[in-house]
């Protein structure tokens, strides 16, 4: 009875993680993370450097093999599958350092993102819409390598949008960008969320976390040490310990 209930819950949630573990030699980077993200929810993952956030993303996306644990995407188990198969199942991600296709244009970067998903004939139209949403139409013919750091972040998010995924992992999408780029990014995230996508967001910018995240998960030493709303997390002693190493 209990197992049936659990399965029903899993089938309803776009992203479910169960006991994810990853060791690098003697170091445990992710130590049994459980997490469930509801539809259209934006969950922020915060924590000090080295707490396992990016490794967690790589495990979910299939870019690192996990030692233990299971992952469900839209109710379908994707544990152990290669990255390309997990992507086709509906997961999209950005990287901490923008991973663009440097030697092709901005427009072609967006087109390349659509090759495995959606209606290919409509891809040029969708690329145009995406560039307008992200206000990068004026650099459509520029090589990706010619963009500023902020524009590169926007383009990477644009590639995610082109895929129309159900779950999006954003790894520091607004780190170090101009406030105007940050505003464009925030609006775009809200728009994509409203159209039905679910987000898991690694972010160090607490203002951004406060603005867009419905829930926050705090990681330290590979574990989830706290979970809740922004205000709950801000007052949490475990969180303060994780960040400052002592109680304040």
């Amino acid at each position: 009875m209990h197992a049936d209930t659990a399965r029903q819950t899993i089938s309803r949630s776009p992203l479910v993680l169960e006991g994810l573990v990853k060791n690098f030699g003697g170091v445990t980077a992710v130590a049994g993370v459980d997490l469930e993200v509801a539809s259209r929810e934006v969950v922020g993952v915060i924590g000090p450097n080295g707490s396992g956030k990016s490794t967690l993303f790589n495990l979910i996306a299939g870019m690192l093999p996990m030692d233990e644990g299971r992952v469900w995407l839209d109710g379908k188990e994707v544990t152990g599958q290669p990255a390309w198969r997990i992507a086709r199942a509906g997961l999209a991600r950005t990287f901490q350092i923008p991973s663009l296709f440097d030697n092709i244009s901005v427009h072609d970067n967006l087109m390349a993102a659509a090759v495995e998903s959606g209606d290919w004939k409509r891809a040029p139209h969708r690329a145009k819409e995406t560039m307008e949403m992200l206000e990068i139409s004026h650099v459509a013919d520029n090589l990706a390598s010619e963009l500023s750091g902020g524009q590169q972040k926007l383009l990477e998010f644009g590639r995610v949008c082109m895929r129309d995924p159900s779950v999006i992992l954003l790894d520091e999408a607004t780190a170090g960008v101009h406030p105007n780029i940050r505003r464009i990014m925030l609006e775009a995230i809200r728009r994509v969320r409203d159209s039905g996508a679910t987000f898991l967001v690694i972010e160090h910018d607490m203002e951004m976390v406060r603005e867009i995240c419905d829930r926050i998960v705090v990681m330290d030493a590979g574990q989830v040490v706290a979970e809740g709303s922004f205000d709950e997390i801000a007052d949490n002693i475990e969180v303060q310990k994780a960040y400052l190493g002592r109680q304040v």
Partner: peptide
């Protein structure tokens, strides 16, 4: 060619 892990993350085999 330009970024193999990113290409895989887009569903390209």
């Amino acid at each position: 060619r330009d970024h193999e892990p990113a290409a895989e993350a887009m569903g390209i085999h």
